[in-house]
Design a protein around this nucleic acid. Structure first.
Lengths: 188, 188
DNA sequence: GTCTATATCGAGATAGAC
DNA sequence: GTCTATCTCGATATAGAC
């Protein structure tokens, strides 16, 4: 696979990643992606045979991005409590996107579940990456036995905040809840 | 409007309600609804001119159903704490649907937000009905100043549980969290 | 009020020139 | 490897018979 083709493939995936988040998977057409990536519709099928293959590419890209981000946090933040606080900062930093489009992971999983799409089990690996990382942090805080449940609880809390913030378009709610989550973490 | 036509209209709305929940709004076609309602495709347009009008009908039906349910709870349950516990029981009683399709309110709002659909502001009234009712219960528990925030917090918590349960298809997580929410309510 | 038949459009996907 | 032109299908929506 040549360099030029690979660059084109990356552009398609990047464009699809954004559009799937902002418009949803089903509602995003090949034309939308082609326009955003600056290529012709027909050129898709050299890189991806079906729309599902693009979805696969987007999920894999996100998984890599998330893994890289968490690895970077592990390198640069030594205190597990501070790492958890950094996780919560995703909410406040991505405030505007969440307000308009919700959580990129939760909304994609929701959509794929309703489509009874086979790739739901690939998409929920995005949750799984965060869950495992969160679990490791709780374990380092001496919460070995509850670590897994605490991780899922925190994941769910953040999801709920994203859904309500999105439905009401209410960033003030997001900020209030982010503070509460931080307080909860500090109390552990 | 005659009785026969009104019955047909109700059948269409009931079928659309279920299908929008199970398959999503966009992914549900007129043919799907017609088949489920047992009518011909062409007969739709006597009752609804566009798909958005069906959506409107579904949202209004849900709003009425929710209002009726909450009014019934107000009549039959006198203790506000028990009313809140009844609210949480939605999660455990609807466990299987949530596992497969998520929350009917949250997932519809998510979808409409991504479609930049004008009726998001009608759909989030479904949240609003519950929020106001929850707020009234917290107020009766002497939580006047925080009642609104507590109501939104509880809404978000339930949403998060629904999203994670759906993504992982994990009813055990739902039951664990439902217990935690109940414990939190009892501690207030 | 309900039906069948059909118009129209945009989607995913393909063929083949360059 | 990228393009233009095109196929096919399923969607919303309409017309008009009954």
């Amino acid at each position: 696979m040549g360099t030029k083709g690979e660059q084109c493939r990356q552009r398609i995936i990047a464009a699809a990643d954004t559009l799937f988040y902002e418009q949803g998977f089903n509602h995003t057409s090949f034309s939308d992606i082609a326009d955003a990536a600056g290529i012709a519709r027909g050129n898709f099928y050299y890189h991806f045979k079906t729309k599902d293959e693009i979805l696969q590419g987007v999920i894999e890209k996100r998984l890599e991005d998330f893994r890289a981000m968490l690895a970077y946090w592990d390198e640069t933040i030594s205190d597990p409590r501070k790492r958890l606080r950094r996780y919560i900062q995703i909410l406040t930093r991505q405030q505007q996107d969440i307000e308009h489009y919700g959580c990129p992971i939760g909304t994609l999983c929701n959509e794929l579940a309703k489509l009874q799409h086979a790739q739901l089990n690939d998409a929920n690996q995005m949750f799984e990456i965060f869950r495992q990382w969160l679990e490791a942090q709780f374990r380092q805080l001496g919460r070995g036995r509850q670590a897994r449940h605490l991780a899922l609880h925190l994941l769910a809390w953040a999801q709920g905040v994203a859904t309500i913030t999105n439905a009401y378009s209410d960033p003030a709610f997001l900020r209030r809840e982010a503070k509460q989550i931080t307080a909860w973490l500090d109390g552990l």
